[in-house]
Amino acid sequence: MDAAAAAALADRLTETAAAARLPASLTEGDPWRPRPFRIDRWRRDLSDTFTVDLVPLDGPPLTFAPGQFNMLYVHGAGEVPISISGDPDQPERLVHTTRAVGQVTNAMKALRVGDTLGVRGPFGTPWPVEAAFGHDVVIVAGGIGLAPLRPLIHAVLARRERFGTVVLLYGARTPEDILYRAAVTAWRGRFDMSVHVTVDRATGRWSGPIGMVTKLIARGGFDARDTMAYVCGPEVMMRHAAQALIDKGVAAERLFLSMERNMKCAIGLCGHCQWGADFVCKDGPVFRYDRVAARLAQAEV
């Protein structure tokens, strides 16, 4: 084969192969590229928990739905999935509440106002808000599980007239561990929302309830047969809270919870966050209880 024939064949192979194989859209884009955001506000919530407000350095704000998460990248340290905690109607401030428990989150804790973070997202399924129009809303949070629920509370209160009774039941470790204390106090002061906080342990200065959040569920204050329930907290707490809601009469298909699993890519390609047949990053993190109840009861899935 002479050089000219070879070159002609090479061109033909490239053209025909490329045309036959893949839509051009598949070979373009960069799913790993983080957008730079500047820390505009940094505050400590609890001894190991902090909240950053982020503003974009390279373009429009990141719009999101309650319950979604972002991958936050700290230069050189790595990337972690963190739920969005801000008001979905005010996306110009991207709010993330993080507990410093690992290398990346500890590096993030050391950042201050003016520093930059990389952001990929938003990812994942949201809490269904409109599905609760016309129904009572019960939000059950355990510990730092209040953080992914706060955008939902914002969204519900912004459309308060669309819902029946709105109840927040929150279990914390101690009175000192109540996340977003100012916001919780403000919600408690509203006439159109009932807020009950219980703690696992307390000194005598705490005059509120002591015990599991499941006891708050049992006490009621909502029309269980006409309720949409949203639960977030440690997995064991969610299992028992879901059962308490079911016992109370809430329908399993009106009960939603948010799962946590190891995530590396957030786009369903790395395999880490698999939970049964679901990728928590894209099929979750918010799941309808009746679809996952059997799996939730199984160890090491």
Binding site: L13, A17, R21, T27, E28, P31, I267
Partner: peptide, 22 residues
């Protein structure tokens, strides 16, 4: 998995390698 036009996400680097492979 990695280059599925019907899926929400794909791996462009894989897709480019695949495109250029006979």
């Amino acid at each position: 998995i990695l280059a599925n036009p019907a899926a929400g996400y794909h791996d462009p680097a894989y897709a480019r390698r695949r495109r250029d492979t006979l």
